[in-house]
Amino acid sequence: MSELIVENVSKSYDGRKIIKNISLTLHEGELVSILGVSGGGKTTLFNVISGLTEPDEGRVFLDGEDITGKPGRISYMLQKDLLLPYRTVEDNVALPLLLRGEKKKAAREQVRPYFEEFGLEGTQKQYPAQLSGGMRQRAALMRTYMFSQNVALLDEPFSALDTITKSSMHGWYLNIMEKIRMSTLFITHDIDEAILLSDRICLLTGRPGEITEEIVIREPKPRRKDFNLTEEFLNYKREILAALDR
């Protein structure tokens, strides 16, 4: 059981309020998107949730435990893969285990079975520079998963990829999420991506950023391949665009 609760979080930098009264709940196995413009405070919110920065007000709870300002409980994945260039893919994804104090050999042993699941079979001994952008993001997600099987924060993980790679990554992502059921908070500024992947979408708007609306995507998972070409999809998109206009 793992449930992330963010309660009334506010944060200012240099006297300017970036986010205001943010509350949200992430249930087990759920994917919730935070949709908003770049520079709207999404990353600040992530830093608060991951414990890297203390909020001015509000708390963050994971499974009932107060983890406000405590790094080391929830990890994240960014647009940049941040794989260490001098470690092989295998040793990169095993890094969270090494940081926890596991021996190198045991850590490699533990990550091995997941390579196939993440579509990274055969890359174990390669260096990140030898992988394509899409493969590197897969490895970055796998590393996040090795850190915690429960909750992950993804900050525009696919936005640096070209449209074609991005679309194939979406397919891969939906597929893997069916298998690993990781509760995920997903930051994006891409409306289509949000509708395609999410169970719920929170709109983060205004300055300071506030969650002004929550939209539930009722399309069951696993989603049809052509979901983004359907009338329902377009209706969701209309609804979101209208809400953003307000």
């Binding site: 790094p71 080391g72 409980r73 990890s75 960014l78 941040l82 260490l84 926890r100 850190f147």
Partner: peptide
Amino acid sequence: TMNLLRSMG
């Protein structure tokens, strides 16, 4: 990268 590792404890 350093922040990411910090987030991993």
